[in-house]
């Protein structure tokens, strides 16, 4: 009888322990690692720097046409950072909160706050489907999550058309983002994979690391005020560079062959180093050309 009881208890423990082990509490205050991809935490990527970005020719035309003056439009001044980029940009000290059904204690969602411009996110954990294709898109998108091998895997749709880098590299409203939240003690690694059928040859994958910071207390955020920066510009003014514009400043500054700064899927892989070396033989970088002259 005692053996039976012990076996029953062991079985019950095994049955009930599995979800507890699979789920890790990720709620709390998380501070960003400011030194990680540091330029993105401040000014953002330089104009014309598409290195390591698997963009296609379509995205390149968009990015080369993009004029930073467009951020002077009143309707662009208050833009937050979109979900496709917000983990990477400045200010993502995160507050993750658990939303639990007060009656059943079932986990309904996690809310994420702290991103630039307060583009809050919700990760629904109750198994609900993603909304209709006709539902509106938001900066945070619509996210659902599930626990897989102790990692929270999040799928996000319904994101706004925006950017994956702040130098004009675009993201479309047709993209899907998958994230893995992996907690190791007082650290969380968030792997972000953006798959965009319009602008990418293959998904952009980036990792972001956060440190538990219980004294942080992410602030409430504030609505941005838009002001008149346009002066006498006509109604509907949309600044942009004409087709064929080449932003060569980045290549010149870093003494790189221009073609090596153009991105594309192949530029993600180690073999691309050889190609850059061949480019440098065929076309010397800007400084070498200047020295010869």
């Amino acid at each position: 009888m005692r053996d039976m009881r012990t076996s029953f208890l062991l079985l019950a423990a095994l049955l009930f322990a599995t979800p507890a082990l699979a789920q890790v509490d990720i709620s709390g205050e998380w501070g960003r690692n400011n030194h990680e991809d540091q330029p993105h935490r401040g000014p953002g990527a330089e104009l014309g720097d598409y290195t390591g970005m698997p963009i296609n020719a379509v995205a390149r035309q968009w990015a080369e046409s993009w004029d930073a003056s467009i951020l002077s439009q009143p309707e662009q001044q208050a833009r937050p950072h979109p979900a496709q980029y917000s983990m990477r940009g400045p200010q993502p000290n995160m507050r993750i909160q658990k939303i639990v059904d007060p009656v059943t204690a079932r986990l309904i969602a996690y809310t994420l706050a702290g991103f630039f411009g307060r583009a809050d996110r919700v990760i629904w954990m109750d198994g609900r489907p993603h909304p209709s294709e006709y539902a509106e898109h938001t900066w945070g998108g619509f996210s659902t999550g599930e626990w897989v091998d102790g990692q929270l895997v999040v799928t996000t749709t319904h994101m706004k058309q925006s950017f994956v880098n702040r130098n004009g590299v675009p993201s479309s409203h047709k993209g899907v983002m998958t994230e893995w939240f992996i907690r190791h003690g007082d650290r969380i690694t968030v792997i972000v994979m953006v798959d965009d059928p319009v602008y990418l040859e293959e998904p952009v994958v980036r990792t972001n690391d956060f440190i538990w910071n219980p004294g942080q207390n992410v602030g409430a955020g504030a609505p941005f005020e838009t002001v008149d920066e346009l002066g006498d510009k006509p109604r509907g003014w949309v600044p942009h560079w004409p087709i064929g514009t080449r932003h060569t400043g980045f290549a010149e500054h870093w003494d790189l062959p221009f073609d090596a700064t153009r991105g594309g899927a192949e530029s993600l892989y180690p073999e691309y180093v050889k190609k850059i070396q061949e480019m440098m033989k065929a076309t010397p970088p800007a400084s070498a050309s200047a020295a010869v002259q």
């Binding site: 007060p102 706050a113 809050d120 919700v122 539902a135 509106e136 619509f142």
Partner: peptide, 20 residues
């Protein structure tokens, strides 16, 4: 209706159009 708890902790989330 429990989603209203989410509403109290997020700005502009959830949007009504997600409830067909």
């Amino acid at each position: 209706r429990v989603d209203l708890l989410v509403k109290t902790r997020s700005i502009e989330q959830p949007q009504l159009s997600q409830y067909a």
